[in-house]
């Protein structure tokens, strides 16, 4: 990781920029959700808004994970652990919702 002084200085700039990005992302999310001008679908809250909002949140959290949590500097092992974890978390969400939306009476 960053050890020499110049490298640290370079990193500092990157951190401020990421911080600014995160701020901007938050503003955009609120705008999408609350301002009529940004309504992507029907007025008020629609599926499109939700998808947009969650996409932005995903981008933001990826930034946090990669830059602030230095995942971009880590070796493969942590990725393996995290990929597994995300696979299971994702599987849990998807399969639970899948079974919710497929009740037995729908088949008759």
């Amino acid at each position: 990781m960053a050890d020499s002084a110049e490298e640290i200085a370079k990193h500092k700039k990157a951190y401020w920029i990421v911080g600014a990005f995160l701020f901007a992302g938050t503003v955009i999310t609120v705008a999408v959700a609350r301002l009529e001008f940004f309504d992507l679908g029907a007025p008020g809250i629609s599926a499109m808004d939700v998808i947009m909002g969650l996409l932005i949140a995903t981008v933001k959290s990826t930034l946090v994970a990669l830059i602030f949590m230095h995942l971009n500097h880590e070796k493969g092992l942590i990725y393996k652990i995290l990929v597994f974890t995300c696979y299971f978390a994702f599987g849990m969400i998807v399969l639970m919702v899948y079974s919710l939306l497929d009740p037995i009476h729908a088949a008759f």
């Binding site: 597994f84 299971f88 599987g91 849990m92 399969l95 899948y98 079974s99 497929d102 009740p103 037995i104 009476h105 729908a106 088949a107």
Partner: peptide, 24 residues
């Protein structure tokens, strides 16, 4: 270990999970 996370609903067949889910 990998598969053991995606089999759990076999305990729930009686709760009325739908056909495609129970097939899965």
């Amino acid at each position: 270990g990998f598969l053991s996370f995606i089999v759990w609903a076999h305990h729930m067949y009686m709760t009325g999970v739908g056909l495609s889910v129970s097939t899965f």
